[in-house]
Design a protein around this nucleic acid. Sequence first.
RNA 1: GGGCGGUUAGCUCAGUUGGGAGAGCACCAGCUCGACAAGCUGGGGGUCACUGGUUCGAGCCCAGUACCGCCCACCA
Length: 805
Amino acid sequence: MEPLYKPEGVEERWQRTWEDEGLYAAEPGSRRETFVVAHPPPNVTGALHTGHALQIALADLLVRWHRMRGFETAFLTGYDHAGISTQNVVEKHLLEQGTSREEVGRERFVEIVWDWLREYGGTIMGQFRRMGASMDYRRERFTMDDAYVRAVMRFFVHLYDKGWIYRANRIINWCPHHETSLSDLELVHEEVDDALTYVRYPFADDPADGVTIATARPATILADVAVAVGRGDGRWRHAVGREVVVPFVERVVPVIEDERVDPEFGTGALKVTPGHDPLDFDIGRDHDLPELTVIGPDGRMNGEAGELAGLNQEEAEERILAWLRERDQLMKREAYRHSIALCERCKSRIEPLISLQWWCRMDEIKQPALAALREGRVRYVPESQHRYAIDSLENAPDWNISRQLWWGHQLPVWECPDGHLTVREEEPGACAECGSAELKRSEDVLDTWFSSALWPFAILGWPERTPELDAWYPGTLNTTAREIIRLWENRMIFSGLELLEEIPFSRVIIHTTVLASDGRRMSKSLGTGLDPLDLVAEHGADATRYGLLKLTSSQDVRFSEGAIEEGRKLANKLWNVSRLILANVGDATPELRPRALEERWIAWRLDQAQAQLEEQFGAYEFSSAMGVLYHVTFDDFCDWYAEAIKPRLYDGDEDARATALANLERLLKLLHPAMPHVTEEIWSNLPGRETRLIVSPWPEPVSAEDASAEFEPIRVAAEVFRRAGVRAPLDEEQQRIFDAVVKPDRAKVDGGDLEAEAERLRGEIARAERMLANERFVQNAPGEVVEAEREKLERYRRELDALGA
RNA sequence: GGGCGGUUAGCUCAGUUGGGAGAGCACCAGCUCGACAAGCUGGGGGUCACUGGUUCGAGCCCAGUACCGCCCACCA
C-alpha cells in the first residue's frame, strides 16, 4: 500500500464492482422495511453540475446508511425529457447544420430529437455513477418511455373528466423565440433601462383638452380600448365617463374608473390594452372591453396594425412617436428603469398575449396536499421551507399546462370540424359528440412539469398495479433545491394524493444552494459554474462528497475548495492509519477484546461518535456529521488510540491486534455512507474479508462503560506537560499510555511557561468561583449548567495541582 | 412593494432552550518518533455589522439602523 491514497482507478473499480455484483439493485419482493428515494430526474441533455453533485452526496449518504441498517433501499433514477430545454438544444444543432425546425417539419423534427438524444443525450448517469451514487441503474426511466407516456395521458384524462382541466382564452406569457406559452414559473426578471412616454389622448368632444397617460410600450397604443383612472381620483373627475381619441388609430374609447390604477404612478391615468398587458386584461374583462391584438406570435406588428403591419416593435414605436410629435401629443419622455420578464431559456422578452390555452384548476386538487402539509404528513426540511411550501400552494394560480412546442407529450385531445373536443387516452375513431371521423389531434404539448409531477409512481409502472408500485409507493424522501418546490415537489404531492390517494414521500429535504466563491450564483452563462467532475478528477469522489456535505448549511454557502481538500485529507489519514494497523497485526482477525484503558476508551468514543452521527443523519445535519467523522478519525482514533496501541502492536499483543482491526472496521462503517470508495478499498484489505462493506451491517453500540474518568487525566497531564514541562501524577496504566502518546522530545520542556500557565488557571478558577458564589446564577441557571461549572472548577484546580507537582 | 435569510478570525463557516468566543484552511514556531508527498505539538489573530433595551450575565432574547443575498409581486 502506497503512503499516499490515490482515489483514481480505485473509485471507478468499486463503482463497477458494486453495480456488477448487484449491490445497488432493489427488489420489490423483499420483506424488509423500505427506504425509497425517487431521485430528481435530470434533463436528458444535461451535464452534472454542483447542485446535482450535492444532491447525490446527500441522498446517497442516506441510502447507503439505510442499506447498512438493513432497509430494502430503492434509489431510483432516470431522465426528464425537458421539453423546451431539449427543443432548444436540438434547434441550435439544426441551425448549425444550416436548417431549422420549420424547414424539417414536426414529424421529422421529433425523429431528429430522438436521434440526437441517442447520440448525445443521457450522459449524466455515467456522472452519477462516477460520484458513487448507489442507484438501481437497471430501473432507469425516461419521461418519454411508452409506459410513462401512458401515465401522463391517464393523468390528463382523469383531470379532464373531473372537470379540472379546461381550455380558455387568457393572457399568457408568450416567448416569441420558442413561439410558446410559458408559466409564470418559467420566467426570469431583469432590470432594464427603458423610457416612460407621456402621451396626451384628446377628448373626443374637446380636442384641445385631454388625458395624459404614461406608457413604457408606445407600440401597444394601437390596441388601446380605454383609458382608466383611479377610483375617486379628483384630478380626473372631469374626464370620467367622457371619451378620448386613441392616437394614430384615432379610435374613440371611454375613460373609466378602476381601483387597480395606481394614482401615484405617472399621471394617474392608464391606457388600457387588454391584448398586451396582464393588468389591462383583468381590467378589460371586468369592464367588458374589447380585446384587440396588434402584436403577433412572432413579436412583430400583425395585420391589425394597419400600415405598421410587419414592423418590429422598435420600428413601430418610432413611427408612432413621430406621429405624436407632429401633433404635439408627445408630452414627455423620461428615463425609466424597471424589470421585465424574460424566457428563462432563451432570454427573449416575454410578450403578454391573449391565447387559447389549456389550464388546470388548482382550487380542489390542492386541498388534500395542503392538508397533508399542514398535518405534517409531508414535511419539508428545514421548517422555513415547509411554511413556504404551504404558502405557495395555497396561493397557486390555475396552471397553464399547454405549450406550443413540438417536443413533449402531445395533448390527448381531438377536435372534429364542428369544433367538438374528444379527450381520450388513445386515439378515438370518431368524435364523441357528433360521430365525425374527421378528427385532428391538438398540436399542443404538455408542460414538462405536468409529467414530472407523476415521477414517484410513473417510474414504478403506474397506472399498472406493479409489484414495484406496491412495494415502493409511497416512497420515503426527496431532495431538491428551493426553486423546485413549486415547480415539482408540491405538484408531486397533489398528483400522488389525487391518483393514488397517498402521499409520494413524507420528507422533502431542501438543500443549500452552493454559490460560486465570489458569492454569485453558479451559472454557465455567468461563467461562474464549476464542473464537479473536475473536482472528482482532482480530489476523488469521496473527497468531493465529503466537501459538499461539509458545505451544507442552513443558508446558501460560497464554494470553497478547502472543504473538498479537508475530505481528501481525511481519506488519506484513514488510508494511512489502516496501513499502520494492517502492517502490524500479523495474522490476527478482527475481534473486539478491549482490555487496556485506551481500548475501553476508544470503544466509548466510537459509541459516542456513532450516536452523534445517527442523530445528525436523522436530522439531515450533514455538515456537523462530517465534523464528527473528521474529529473522531484524526483526534481520537489516530492521535490517541493508534498512538497508544502502537507499542503493543509491535510487541505482538494479540488482543491489541484483534481489537485494532475490529475498531478499524467500525470506523470504516461509520465513514462509509459519506466516503464509500476509500472505506470499501480498505475493507477489502482486511484479513478474512469476503463480504462487501456496502452491504455490511451498521454497527451496534459496544455499550462500553464511560472510560473518560480514567482517560481524561492523561489528556490533562499531556496538556500540562506540553505547556509547562511538568509531569502530573498518573497511575501505571495511565502512565503507559502517556509515554506512548506524549513522547518527551515532542514536549516543550523549558518550564518557562509554568508561571504563565498557573496564572491562566488561577484566572479561570477565580471566574468559576465567582459564578458559583452568585446566588442568582446558582438558583436560576439549569442544574446541568451549574454542575458543569462545578466540574470545570475542579478540573482547573486539578490542573493547577499538577503544575505544582 | 411584500416575504425569508444573512452579517462571528485573513478565507469558508459552526456556535442546539442566555453561563468559559470555536472548527477547517491559511499564517508563525518547535519536533520529526518504525502509518501519514506529510504528520505531531504549541502559538498569533475576533468591538461576534451598528445603536439602544431586557438580564446577575447577551454572539444568542427584544426594538431599531445599515449593508448583502434569495424568493415572490400586474406599478403601466
